[in-house]
Write a protein that binds this DNA or RNA. Structure first.
Lengths: 218, 218
DNA sequence: AAATGCAAAGTTGCATGCACAATCCCCATC
DNA sequence: GATGGGGATTGTGCATGCAACTTTGCATTT
């Protein structure tokens, strides 16, 4: 078994965080300290410390003397989160246009080209996987850990709501075309262009999500 | 007086946070749980919970079984933070151009005009105070709590390093001119222009800081 | 004199217990 | 039947204590 160099508090915080992010712990559900302590085989102390950590990062709400609940994201807050995500992604693209190394630029170009082939043969699964890598490249390429960490945290937070972006018909080809605009601007060092192109791209992703949401909500 | 409903943990977290942000607790200093508990007249439990909260927000570093230390910001990290701050301020300006209500736009215009008078009579104190309000208007005007909270948190984090921006000669007039470009773009609904103008403005602020830093570092 | 090993002191991680606040539930009252 | 009040209950906030790990200083060895 893995030697637990990490403390119980840390393990608890990590476990609870993923449970919340992947939906196992539903929004609005109450987090009873006794129950969690028993379920994880510890005392209440590490549970309390983990909860405080989660509260600071916004995953749960900690009401003094009234316990903790998993944060409910209303559709308005979700909208706000998506807008923020879009702005941060655009910022990453902008900074990437300014800061990417030649090697990073070459890799970006290569990935984009290979995604073109996936588009041509309609390989949604491969494209979806590569899409994550594509966006991740800009987080790293921004060469600014503060911005990239904010963006990554937001992306993780929104992951449960971003499932099926490419199911919408014709979305694959359009996505690739939009990627092309971003890549062209970044490779050309056009900061403003990269910003605008990425913003355009992620706004459309958001719209695609919106439509799917409404469809499945019927 | 503020309602004393907050728990000891919360009070401790708030106190320690301001102590760190205003420099009372120097970067790198060790935070002994016993010492803090005694100093604040509590037991170690709330201290530990407060420390975990501060660690999550990045103000301290919590090394398992080895205690907590106030985070050391290197000059490179400071640079990164300033760049991130600039990008977020620009984003706020961009969103403000899109989202500000007519009333907000009118207030912004009025403040800018009154700051023109302060510039004319060289009132650095009044200008400095109004400058905070000026920037705060964009945080609110963005109408996106996720972005604005990120920006406000960063601003607070950088506050200790932003003291004397307007001491540099001629800075007041230049600042006001740059503000003018931002205001013009926002009032005209020019999102890209607002973004660019604010970015230009805060980059120069950063430079001004940089110069002062070097001068005082001799 | 430098390096290594060891023991003691100091600190953190976690469990347990108690007090008080919030909530619930029952019953009396309107 | 709805409403309000007063315990009983549940659960959180905090203090204390113990065990385990880290660090420090000293003694021993090379």
């Amino acid at each position: 078994m893995a030697d637990e160099r990490q403390t119980r508090t840390e393990k608890l915080a990590a476990d609870l965080a993923s449970a919340i992010l992947d939906g196992t712990l539903e929004p609005g559900s109450r987090l009873d300290e006794h129950m969690l302590a028993e379920r994880y085989g510890t005392s209440r102390t590490p549970v309390r410390e983990a909860l405080r950590q989660l509260a600071t990062s916004g995953l749960i709400e900690l009401r003094p003397r009234r316990g903790a609940v998993v944060t409910q994201v209303t559709s308005e807050q979700l909208d706000t989160l998506f807008v923020a995500m879009g702005e941060l992604e655009a910022t990453c693209a902008r900074l990437s246009a300014l800061s990417m190394t030649p090697i990073e630029r070459r890799r970006l170009d290569a990935l984009h080209e290979s995604m073109g082939e996936m588009t041509a043969r309609g390989d949604v699964a491969a494209y979806t996987a590569s899409n994550t890598v594509f966006h991740t490249m800009f987080y790293a390429g921004a060469h600014n850990v503060v911005v990239s960490e904010m963006t990554i945290a937001l992306r993780r937070r929104l992951a449960p709501f971003r499932q099926a972006q490419f199911r919408a018909p014709g979305r694959l080809a359009r996505s690739h075309a939009e990627h092309g605009a971003v890549v062209k601007a970044v490779l050309g060092g056009d900061a403003a262009g990269a910003h605008a192109a990425m913003l355009h791209h992620v706004s459309l992703v958001e719209d695609a999500f919106d439509q799917l949401q409404r469809i499945s909500a019927v």
